Computed example of a mutant assay.
Amino acid sequence: MIRRCPQCGTAADDKYGFCYKCGHEFPKIEANPDTCSLCGFHNPPEAEYCVKCGTPLLFKQQFEKTNTSNFGPIVIQKEVVQRPPEQRQNRTSRWLILFGYIFSILGGILGLIIAIYLSTRKDPVARKHGHIQLAIFAFYIALIAIFYLTGNIPPEAIAQYRQMLAGNFTSI
């Protein structure tokens, strides 16, 4: 049974009869479920909490169910929560998200295609990353427009870029 040591305040298991921090000996608890496990006070039968110290009478319901004086240890089971299949991300989505960020940051057309593909998926995680990658492209377009309008990118550079895209590499 887990009890709080009255000497040092540590929550300790009293199956050995002593606190593991300070060595305080726990008083023996009688088999009555109305007796408080912390202070040993005998409570009225209708009490859910100790009337002296306020500690919950945890073993009262267990005693009424089993009607024995031999209480086992408290076992707290951790519940493992798994995502539903529609919320789980598959390996393909992870790789596409990774490559989407790489190509989005590098500014390639492949990154734009991956970003559009991801933003149209049913998976909310993939859709979110697709929207972020599209925002990166929007930022790059806004940055290029600001540089062009302020004169930091000359109009000749845009003309050379258009020629390069058209396949005419003679005047680079």
Rank of each mutant, 00 (worst) to 15 (best):
residue 4 R to F: 10
residue 161 Y to F: 06
residue 153 I to Y: 01
residue 86 E to Y: 12
residue 75 V to A: 06
residue 35 T to W: 13
residue 16 Y to S: 12
residue 68 T to D: 08
residue 145 A to F: 10
residue 144 I to S: 10
residue 146 I to F: 08
residue 116 I to R: 03
residue 112 L to Q: 05
residue 150 T to A: 08
residue 118 L to E: 00
residue 107 G to A: 02
residue 11 A to S: 07
residue 49 Y to T: 13
residue 31 A to L: 09
residue 163 Q to C: 01
residue 161 Y to V: 12
residue 108 G to E: 11
residue 168 N to L: 11
residue 80 V to K: 12
residue 108 G to L: 14
residue 171 S to E: 06
residue 121 R to Q: 05
residue 163 Q to T: 09
residue 76 I to A: 05
residue 144 I to H: 10
residue 127 R to Y: 03
residue 69 S to W: 06
residue 18 F to N: 01
residue 136 I to Q: 03
residue 169 F to T: 05
residue 73 P to S: 09
residue 70 N to I: 10
residue 15 K to L: 15
residue 24 H to A: 14
residue 107 G to M: 03
residue 54 G to P: 03
residue 52 K to W: 03
residue 26 F to H: 01
residue 123 D to N: 07
residue 168 N to W: 09
residue 168 N to V: 12
residue 59 F to R: 02
residue 103 F to M: 03
residue 26 F to W: 07
residue 92 T to I: 07
residue 143 L to W: 14
residue 51 V to P: 02
residue 151 G to R: 06
residue 110 L to H: 12
residue 61 Q to L: 09
residue 117 Y to H: 06
residue 19 C to P: 01
residue 159 A to T: 11
residue 158 I to P: 00
residue 151 G to Y: 03
residue 138 A to Q: 13
residue 122 K to S: 07
residue 20 Y to G: 13
residue 74 I to P: 03
residue 79 E to M: 15
residue 88 R to N: 12
residue 166 A to R: 06
residue 117 Y to E: 02
residue 148 Y to V: 06
residue 86 E to H: 12
residue 48 E to N: 13
residue 94 R to G: 05
residue 38 L to P: 00
residue 56 P to I: 08
residue 33 P to V: 07
residue 24 H to P: 00
residue 17 G to Q: 05
residue 37 S to E: 11
residue 91 R to E: 11
residue 147 F to M: 10
residue 13 D to F: 08
residue 61 Q to A: 05
residue 160 Q to G: 10
residue 65 K to V: 10
residue 172 I to K: 15
residue 18 F to Y: 07
residue 61 Q to M: 06
residue 63 F to M: 02
residue 29 I to P: 01
residue 36 C to Y: 04
residue 42 H to A: 06
residue 84 P to Q: 15
residue 29 I to Q: 13
residue 57 L to E: 04
residue 140 Y to V: 04
residue 131 H to F: 10
residue 165 L to P: 02
residue 167 G to A: 05
residue 39 C to P: 01
residue 67 N to L: 09
residue 15 K to T: 08
residue 165 L to E: 13
residue 133 Q to S: 02
residue 146 I to E: 11
residue 167 G to M: 02
residue 34 D to I: 01
residue 5 C to Y: 01
residue 44 P to G: 11
residue 172 I to W: 10
residue 134 L to F: 05
residue 150 T to K: 06
residue 129 H to D: 00
residue 153 I to G: 02
residue 131 H to N: 10
residue 83 R to A: 15
residue 3 R to K: 13
residue 102 I to H: 04
residue 143 L to R: 07
residue 75 V to G: 02
residue 1 M to C: 15
residue 65 K to C: 05
residue 43 N to Q: 09
residue 161 Y to S: 10
residue 125 V to A: 09
residue 105 I to Q: 12
residue 13 D to R: 05
residue 64 E to D: 06
residue 16 Y to I: 09
residue 161 Y to C: 11
residue 106 L to G: 02
residue 156 E to L: 14
residue 129 H to L: 01
